[in-house]
Design a protein around this nucleic acid. Structure first.
Lengths: 144, 144
DNA sequence: GTTCTTGCAAAGGATTTGCATCCTC
DNA sequence: GAGGATGCAAATCCTTTGCAAGAAC
């Protein structure tokens, strides 16, 4: 991690009121270099390469801390367990109901006319999490 | 359950290739009379009033069978466990990030311009599952 | 009768927790 | 040094599974 990135990490911890520990830093760095929607186990496996003594519990604790402080986001999947959102651009998910694969699509490319602000009923809309369910290109071919 | 409803239930089982058992019927009936997004435990509690000997495993098995055969749907929540969708009208979810409450909103009332069919990349969109994240009216008042 | 279901108890996976030790601030 | 963080193991929660006994077709 570059000096710039270390500074960024330390500022981020300060803002969130978290100590800038070595484990925390490595988890952060590993996440930044992952793609898609990694599970805690996947993150753990990667971090373990650099800190063999790390425990899964520590990974869980830090993932939650990162999510709580808004550094990363949790993915809402049609799926049972915790997944971390790596993609920082506004986007939605294409969920294939056949092979269960999940891919991202830019919010713009999907072109949903989402409107923020007050909805009828007084609910204040701040973010739209859209899962598009359907069939991916591969599964359509197989279905022929 | 009326004679008409029993007939409906038996046809439904036949279509899905399922035996029309007593337990299955009561689970179905209980679901039909629930609202919102009940958990397996909640369904179990209700069914148990009428069939005290029922087991939680049976409830789980049947919920999955109903979901697989398209009789009910699974809710995708920012939430860890299985929930059954009772509302059959096309709708989306308003998820309050403060109190975690979830309410339904009709697809029309939300007015999202969802488009079915092929998306760029070849994905075939069949259904849109939208979670609107934000603050419910109550939590906005409390935040003042 | 055969096959599908049930109920039970045990197993399984994912996540959390308690606690002693260790590291930042 | 004080309080937060870590690692470990045990605990917990949610869900699934194996199997013998019972019900549906």
């Amino acid at each position: 991690m570059s000096a710039q990135e270390i500074k960024e990490f330390r500022e981020l911890c300060e803002r969130a009121g978290l100590a800038a520990t070595h484990q925390r830093q490595v988890i952060y760095e590993v996440l930044k270099n992952m793609h898609g929607h990694p599970s805690p186990e996947e993150v753990y496996a990667r971090v373990k390469r650099r800190i063999p003594s790390i425990s899964l519990a520590t990974v869980y604790k830090n993932l939650h801390l990162f999510i709580e402080s808004g550094v990363f986001r949790e993915v809402s999947l049609h799926h049972g367990s915790l997944r971390v959102e790596i993609n920082h651009k506004p986007h939605h998910h294409l969920v294939c109901t056949s092979c269960k694969s999940i891919s991202d699509i830019d919010a713009e490319a999907l072109g949903l006319a989402t409107q923020y602000g007050k909805l009828p009923g007084g609910f204040l809309a701040q973010r739209f999490a859209v899962d598009v369910l359907g069939l991916c290109a591969d599964c359509q071919k197989k279905a022929d």
